[in-house]
Amino acid sequence: MSILTPTGAGAAEHLGRGPLTADELAAVIARDIPEGAYVNLGIGRPTRIADHLPEDCGVVLHTENGMLHMGPAAQGAQVDPDLTNAGKVPVTELPGAAYFHQADSFAMMRGGHLDVCVLGAFQVSTTGDLANWHTGRSDDIPAVGGAMDLAVGAKAVYVMMSLFTKEGEAKLVPSCTYPLTGVRCVGRVYTDHAAFDITPEGARIRETWGSTQADLIARLAAAAAPRG
């Protein structure tokens, strides 16, 4: 398992807090999204990042069903069935929004125009492979949506996930056992215990929450990868 400690000054160890809740983690990711970036937030947990983006950050949210500058979830009379996010939740539009069809939406993604996407994951490898669309179980109905297109298209692919499964297995693994979404596509992994940069040498710790780097590395080494 190639988990690396930072070079130079080292990563921040936040021993007083953590593991982070999903909302705390969303706030950490929101902090790291560059001002003015065009960003796609995957369905499920990454959607919460939008709630933590400062109003003046200038971030423009892309939703792959065909819109730029998506606003917050619609409330009450704002609900319009013709205006949803990729999770089919009614949303709102912000001044400066634009609508476009599916081929244009994915062209702007694949064409390298989107700065950041944040996706959920079942597993990420220390080489940046992503598995988030299929458990591989024979009774599972697979659904891929735009995940494979985002994985190859966005300039920076971030993953937001828990570091361990409920059974205690590591989700950051030497090699994914679940079917892949994309190969060597993930740049950064945000988890409840730590954030990592995927580098040519392996996953390098950026920050930890609730444990030291040494403890975290030991725990990851002890946790077996799940069986596919």
């Binding site: 599916q102 081929a103 994915f106 009774d139 109905i141 949506g145 735009g146």
Partner: peptide, 20 residues
């Protein structure tokens, strides 16, 4: 699907759009 009464071809969303 589980009863084997329908066939599924799964296509990434962007490929679906671009193939159309």
């Amino acid at each position: 699907y589980r009863a084997g009464k329908i066939e599924l071809e799964l296509v990434p969303q962007g490929n679906l759009a671009e193939r159309l």
